[in-house]
Amino acid sequence: MNPKMMIWISVALSAVAQILLKHGLTRVQSKSSNGVLGTIFNIATQGFIWLWGFAFVAATGLWLVGLQKLDLSYAYPLVSFGYVLVSVMSLVFFKERVDANRWFAIAVIGLGVVLIAGS
């Protein structure tokens, strides 16, 4: 796999991880628990939290391998593409309202990412 592809997959996996974490924590909140220990137990046994953990570790690993062969000034700003992905996924999976101003801002960030990706 080429290093640039690894960076893109890492950024996408981080965004997916955010969605998994949010979904997992929402599920934990909806469960009744007995005190702090009960909450910790509910978090530790929530499948989506585990998926978040795996996605997080995989994203970090791919990031390191990709970054070894790329400039930091090239790879690091690409992380901001995560904002674009998280916004789109929040709309799709959580039906969160994304207003026109926010879409415009997301498009501007996307443009910046495209400029860097081609640099």
Partner: peptide
Amino acid sequence: HEVVPPRRIIGVAVIVIGMILMNRN
């Protein structure tokens, strides 16, 4: 001593503007 082409600097500037716009309202 990374070589930073102008296009990359413009890209970062555009991202900064986008992030400001994103949370402006």
